[in-house]
Design a protein around this nucleic acid. Sequence first.
DNA 1: TGTCGAGTTAAGTCT
DNA 2: TAACTCGACA
Length: 809
Amino acid sequence: MFPIDLLDGAHGGTPSSQNSPLLQGLNDEQRAAVTLPQGHALVLAGAGSGKTRVLTTRIAWLLQTGQVSPGGIMAVTFTNKAAKEMTARLSAMLPYNVRGMWIGTFHGLCNRLLRAHHVAAGLPATFQILDTQDQLSAVKRLCKQYGVDDERFPPKQLTWFIAGCKEEGMRPQDVPVADPDTKKKVELYALYEAQCQREGVVDFGELMLRSFELLRDDAALRAHYQQRFRFLLVDEFQDTNKLQYAWLKQLAGEFVNGKMQSTSSVLAVGDDDQSIYAFRGARVGNMSDFVREFDVQHQIKLEQNYRSYGNILDSANALIEHNSQRLGKNLRTDQGAGEPVRVMESPTDLDEASWIVGEIKDLVRNDGYSRQEIAILYRSNAQSRVIESKLFNAGIPYRVYGGQRFFERAEIKHALAYLRLIENPHDDTSFMRVVNFPARGIGARSVETLQETARAAGCSLNDAVTAVGGAAGTKLQGFVAKMDVLREEAEGKTLRQTIERMLEVSGLIDHYGTEKEGQDRIENLKELINAAESFVTQEGFGKDAVALPMDETGAPLTQSPASQGLDTSLPVLDLPLNGTDAETGETLSPLQAFLVHAALEAGDNQAQAGQDAVQMMTVHASKGLEFDVVFIGGLEEGLFPHENAMSDRGGLEEERRLMYVAITRARKRLYLSHSQSRMLHGRTTFNLPSRFIDELPESALKWISARGGFGSFAPKSAAGSGWQSGARGQFGAYSPKGPEVFANPVVPAQKAAPAHGIAKGLTVFHTKFGEGKVLAVEGAGDDARAHINFPRHGAKWLALAIAKLTIVD
DNA sequence: TGTCGAGTTAAGTCT
DNA sequence: TAACTCGACA
């Protein structure tokens, strides 16, 4: 906290207090970024260079020097995590309420804009947000309705197509049609749009596109926000897509002859080396476009790293050197070399997991690390399962981020669908989801009839119910009546009461009560009530939901905002997080706000927060975080780099940046691990060690795996990069099966091996293990392996070029 | 119409 | 491996 009397002059005063406590402890580059003069600027911030600190201090600085009031600031991030952290740091730094500032994710801020101007945006006040699952089921429903051949047009691909179009800012009429297939897809895109509009729902892409169009087409509104936001700060700028950049330009000012005419100041903070979202339309090129189009005068590089020791940083630097498309940047540290980066090789993914768990035990018991400072990173969510089960068996608390998120669980989606139907009876996606769940005798046939009726009448499923006759009609009407009752009862009830009543009336609790594994689900549903409860408390619903414009002390502004240079002809929209209707002044109901929360923040804070638990997440989810100890598992060709990304150069470079992000998460100790075989999608695969391991400097590494036992599997790096044999004595302890799995001696593969004749289902004889049954055969030629179950020794993988096997029957 | 089991298929990162 | 679809049967 800094004393208020340090405030340097009134509005627009020159920031002269260079010895402000705010600036203490910043290095020269950071200080330069924090105290940048007005105008557009780009900060290239390397990993661990104190980027978040710079951003938040910059905001505090702007406020402290009176250059802007809280309402004049907009800070955009990509993840809720980042937005939350920024808000938290700011409230610790500033002596007044930060709620008046627009700090949030792109999608969160778009939602806020659309809520506030839903009439102008052509949306109902209660519009709902579709997540990826909802979007897919909406598309499936559409395809079925129009009899689309889902072989030729898989619904999933259609959702990608639609999302891709929106990311490029294209409506159906804007999409260039080159071939009949595209023509069809565009038609479906248009139909999908109509369906969403009819049902009052928007997907993620629509949130962005719709609010972009709102700003583009409504000059008065645009002028208002341009006037209002004097300072726009954008985090992770390298991850912006075309549409997001265009959206920013609308807010920043008017674009004339390719140049930005702007009275506001845009600060873009990014790191081209950490661009890992090209797959969802991110354009690193936005950085250079920004410099050109905004005529950026100030560029600052933050290269001093405060996070990691030398060996870790050297590894990161050496790795990213292999990329060709870079702006160029090299991290440095004063912290000394630190420990070497440890590299581990395991025979199987199970061994890898056991080793990680054993290592974690040591770290906690012997080296005094707390579990929450240890992270296990992996390329894809599917990898977490094995590690989870080992951690679970070892009794080590852990927390998994991402993956199956709380709000994406089936029972929670069902509950939310009921809540959405209470809010908006025309939400057909939700209607379809729960009309017969729990089962109430409304079968597929009845639903089909209902859909046809609705389509013919051009109304929602809810409204079409009365037109359906017979027994089916009666049952449908019963369902709708039930929902009507719930809707009426929700009036004047607390969110908690509404949800509890819904769980009861819908029959969800009863249903799961009779199900075998329903107890967990019931627990989750109760957790939903808790989530709603704490949401209501945190957001302060029920009190004065509209935050008034504030002065620096948090007291409401008594003087006109015009003194801040704001356009007073429009209402000042200092709104609570989830927005208020600017035209009517109505605020969202707690239920509406909670549904928004559920859709936009998929609930990464499920697990027991606060517990000292090992952190598990994908590399993507780890961006922006840091830990004392980091394990990166599954460093194998095909997995990391992922095979789908290996075909083209761009994809491979993105994978490398991903690896760069992973490495730079570690402060003190980094473990890299790969496994020779891995259960993937139900098959055992054999992968070479990742090329990324080879790209690291030998001097920074230390191999802790014992080499040997795997003849032809010898990692390709073995040739040049010295596989020092087991430097750690405990190798045998954490890989008890190790020596047995491949019990055959290592001999050079014989060239004349291919015609082995071993096939699944055969019984074979092994000189040491006796008779066994072949479970599977993988690979060909010298690389062929068989998985054989020996009654007395268990299932083993044997290299057919080496093992002496005879076929018994 | 609901339920259950067999067969099929996809499989990656996120708001 | 897990989620999903489809067909047989009650």
